[in-house]
Write a protein that binds this DNA or RNA. Structure first.
Lengths: 213, 213
DNA sequence: CCATGTGAAGGTATTCACAGCC
DNA sequence: GGCTGTGAATACCTTCACATGG
């Protein structure tokens, strides 16, 4: 193994592998081959081997990968061993759904704080998290929370992001459909749900012959 | 302009341009240069010109792009002029949030049907849409709805997808964190929210010196 | 003169094929 | 025999630089 920079596309696939490994370990397996993992997650086997080769030797030729060891390796590479606590800003429809969403636990991530500007929401406890006044975002630094999820209206998005940055946040998952300006040291990933739906028609076949299946 | 196949990455950016154009038209503009659009959406100007060059001549050298004309062109390319109605399956926390989400309208897309298996939810009207029994998914064909959004638990995802495919659906936006098997003629886009959050720590700087901004 | 559209160059990621190891 | 790890080949996308048109 050599030290290459890990390609972004590889980083994008690593969580997929992690999910596949967890399913496999629940089924009682101890080892898995790149081929079996490939079948379970829907990626090609050589792609998996190439991806893993960027950051470590995890496999045993003729045997496969020790699942626990590989999962630990991927978690360490993604730094999921160090970052475990996240804050949510914006407890509207989407924000509430995210608070209730169990999927983050899969990756060891926990939403431990929630903020909103609406007085009617402040103080309410949802899924074990008490909603705080958005003015208290600056307490994130002393609480050592450096990861935030933004589910606010796009009009408020840039101002919210600025606050989060000022509070020492280093990574933002943004659901608002807009460009965010942030210092280079802060990573912003924007996930625009409507946009994903909007590119779907392009790939749909035009023909309408009925009775398929 | 020549007829190239449009790169996937370009298709991914087209909805972003569309959003930028709509903001600009609201501000009362009639024409926009690739540079100004670039500034507003956070993409490079030459990238925009290259992307647009794959499917039409929309600009006027020395002037820029007629906003209305370009927006129509992009919508037609993405087939957003033909596909306007979508169905939602799974009216849980996330599904409800999606029903209430105004963002789809931006692209002319409308959720006009909703399904769930929970008897407690069936019959309830949310955001103008009445929740129907999931057993009625097969009525989608006669209603000519070919686009679906899936927000069901991952255990139910494959079975739901099979039903949708049988009902003639041609495109699925899937929020369940799992691989879906579908015929090649059906396009599936999986949007795994937890996965996006999981790759964020990788890009966050390790240093913890306080007092930045 | 200004802004578009596009060949060509450069860079990144995917795919292949196989050497090496268990 | 089976499976990993990786150089090499290929395909794809981005970036540049400029000819072309209003």
């Amino acid at each position: 193994m050599r030290y290459h920079k890990i390609p972004d596309e590889t980083v994008r696939r690593l969580p997929v592998y992690l999910r596949g490994l967890m399913v496999s370990v629940e089924q009682g397996h101890e080892y898995i081959s790149s081929q079996r993992l490939a079948d379970s997650v829907g990626v090609d086997a050589w792609q998996i081997r190439k991806d893993l080769s960027y950051f470590g030797d995890f496999g045993t030729p003729g045997v496969g990968y020790n699942i626990e060891k590989l999962a630990r390796g991927i978690k360490k590479t993604l730094r999921l061993d160090a970052i475990r606590r996240a804050a949510l800003v914006g407890v509207g429809d989407l924000g509430s759904a995210l608070l209730a969403y169990p999927g983050f636990r899969t990756y060891g991530l926990d939403i431990v704080a929630a903020f909103d500007v609406d007085p009617a929401k402040i103080g309410v406890v949802t899924n074990g998290v008490k909603v705080e006044d958005a003015a208290k975002i600056d307490t994130l630094r002393q609480r050592e929370i450096s990861l935030a999820i933004m589910a606010v209206p796009w009009e408020a998005a840039q101002a919210t992001a600025d606050r989060l940055v000022a509070a020492g946040v280093k990574g933002i998952l943004n659901f608002a459909p807009c460009k965010l300006v942030a210092p280079r040291r802060v990573k912003v990933i924007t996930l625009d749900i409507a946009m994903e739906l909007a590119r779907l028609p392009y790939y749909m076949p035009r023909s309408e012959q009925a009775g398929d299946m």
